[in-house]
Amino acid sequence: MVAYKDIKASNALINDANAPHIAVFVGGTSGIGKLTLNALVGTGTSLRIYLVGRRSSEERTQSFIQDLHVVNPKAEIVWTEAEVSLLAEAKRVCEDIKSKESRIDLLFLTTGYAPFGARKETPEGVEITQSLGYYTRMLFVLQLLPLLKKTENPRVVNVLGGGMERTTSINVDDLDLKKPGSFRAMTAQPHYITLNTVFLDKLAVEHSDVTFIHSWPGSVNTGNVWRSLDPDQYILSWVVWLFLDPLIRLISSSDEEAGQRHLFYCTSAAFGGRGIAWKGKAGISTSGTSNTGLFLVNYKCESTPNAKVIPLLREKATAKVWEHTQMLLGAYL
């Protein structure tokens, strides 16, 4: 485990020379994204951050943005409204950012919620939690890669469940979980986690100049469980209120610590790239290197390259996941 004091010491070295000056936060209006954004702005460095969120969250987010400006007047937060469960909306946002910026230093992805409810498709025909937890994220990565590749220390930080992949977690014969009985909370979430890692693993090989991080944040009380429940799920809501929510509160790390640990991922050379020098143990990517690739990291800031599983996933799933995802996203690229 990387000691929290060492993480704070590393983050204290962030300055105008090494900070990610231009960042895109997709899902930064709540949860890990908001906590990390708060930590990044708190460094006091000059920043421009595109904060992408839904119209329903704009009012409270504008208040948050005002607070951030008080903390750091040098930080410019650009509110960007979008319903990013829709791939067309994600494409629109990316095109807008590309028209304004020549480079991006950091892409931070946290969209989605636990798939506890019934299966629901967007108007584009994609199950909404899978769109938020996988397709939208990969579309942002693919769209913004050209801008990321124009900076010295480009990073993509994807927050979901890095290191928790299993060969049995992914259904390569039903990648969109449309067959009867396929879409269940206990199968959908592991499926999405593995999809993210498989796709990012291939991207990391093809774009070795970009650092990719797939984070499992552990237990943080973000309210994610509640957002997944339908109003008519009385029994499940009661179970969450009586048992799950108190358990999450009991074992969760603090908001501040979660934000600082993810800021560490965004800036430290512990996970490849040209980040802030790190004297501790270097992370190991899924390619077995410490300077480039996809880094799977857990809530202890330890790299968990899942060395027994990843080669099997490459053999079993990569080609199918890559082809299927490119086909589905093709119209939006």
Rank of each mutant, 00 (worst) to 15 (best):
V2D: 11
K8W: 06
L13N: 13
I14A: 12
H21Q: 05
A23M: 15
A23Q: 15
V24C: 10
V26Y: 15
T36W: 01
T36N: 14
G42Y: 04
T43V: 08
T43L: 06
I49P: 15
I49L: 13
L51E: 15
L51G: 02
G53E: 00
G53M: 01
R54Y: 04
E58A: 09
I65E: 12
E83A: 07
A90R: 04
R92F: 11
E95G: 08
L106A: 06
Y113H: 14
A114S: 10
G117N: 09
A118L: 14
E121V: 08
T122H: 01
V126F: 11
E127R: 02
L142W: 04
L144N: 02
V159H: 00
G161M: 06
M164W: 14
E165L: 13
N171L: 13
V172K: 03
L177F: 13
F183H: 14
R184F: 02
A185T: 00
Q189H: 14
P190Y: 12
L195W: 04
T197K: 09
V198K: 01
L200C: 04
E206P: 00
S208D: 07
V210P: 06
F212D: 02
I213T: 04
I213D: 08
P217L: 05
V220H: 00
V220S: 13
N221G: 02
G223W: 02
G223P: 00
V225G: 07
L229S: 14
I235C: 13
S237N: 12
V239F: 13
L244Y: 05
Y265S: 14
T267W: 06
S268V: 01
S268L: 02
G273E: 12
R274W: 04
A277N: 12
A277R: 03
A282L: 02
S285P: 03
S285L: 07
N298E: 03
K300Q: 12
T318L: 06
W322M: 14
Y332L: 10
